[in-house]
Design a protein around this nucleic acid. Structure first.
Lengths: 124, 124
DNA sequence: ATGCTGATTCGACGGATGTCAATATTGAGG
DNA sequence: CCTCAATATTGACATCCGTCGAATCAGCAT
């Protein structure tokens, strides 16, 4: 089991917004090719059941981060888990940090809100 | 979890969500295999740049619907456009209706809000 | 009917993707 | 140093996916 993490979580929650201005809400105006390319990359990353579960496991984990060892039980081999985590990281949805033997993944702050705003033109 | 959430953020539209209970917010608890399968299907549908543009074209079009002829200019051949529209339809994101010579696609009501809620745990 | 236009379907092709076993890397401990 | 446990990388394989041209279907008109 992972060692207990120091109680020094970065409290950087700005009021709201702030991160990843990938593109306007889908309902506001047609996305151009470039915007679509960027946004589609994120949606694509969540477009695989295993990746979506892994992401959800991290996102719902205490402290907003999770050790790989805590989330590896999704029905595929360990290399496959690693592969998917890498993809989520490449898509900008997760970040990783090695602490001793274990590697911790956390949800990149803001991306959830950013993607949510692309779908629902709530505030704007 | 350091979020305060006390502030008066942009008032959400209606208190009732209503449609498409695909699965809980990703941050609430880990998705099980079945939920992930369902939700991933939608994200996957938006995970292609051309599809995302087509969807955005429909979603942002006047009246919430658009004729295929109005949105076919996204840089791929017309059969490919048709193929992508079919995929969006199969994923439950669009519906189509033929009116005379033309076929109109419209955003299936509620799906945007539903997907948005999966990303941002608004209701909570 | 014949033709025309808008849209879907078919068949094929190349490239991307998910998966695994095997191997390599990294750090902790003896 | 050596060994072990946790992750990552490699290489191979089968399948899926986006794309196109050609053919087909569906209305509307002459």
């Amino acid at each position: 089991m992972p060692t207990s993490r120091a109680a020094e979580l970065p409290v950087l929650d700005q009021p709201d917004e702030g991160v990843a201005p990938c593109c306007p809400p889908l309902t506001e105006r047609p996305l151009d090719a470039e915007e679509a390319e960027r946004a589609a990359k994120m949606f694509k990353a969540l477009g695989d059941p295993v990746r979506l579960r892994l992401f959800s496991l991290v996102a719902s984990h205490e402290g907003g981060e999770a050790c790989v060892c805590d989330i590896s039980d999704v029905g595929v081999s360990q290399p496959t888990v690693s592969h998917h985590l890498k993809k989520l990281k490449d898509a900008g949805l997760l970040s990783s940090e090695r602490r001793g033997t274990w590697v911790y993944y956390r949800v990149e702050p803001g991306v959830l809100a950013a993607m949510g705003q692309v779908l629902t033109a709530a505030g704007r």
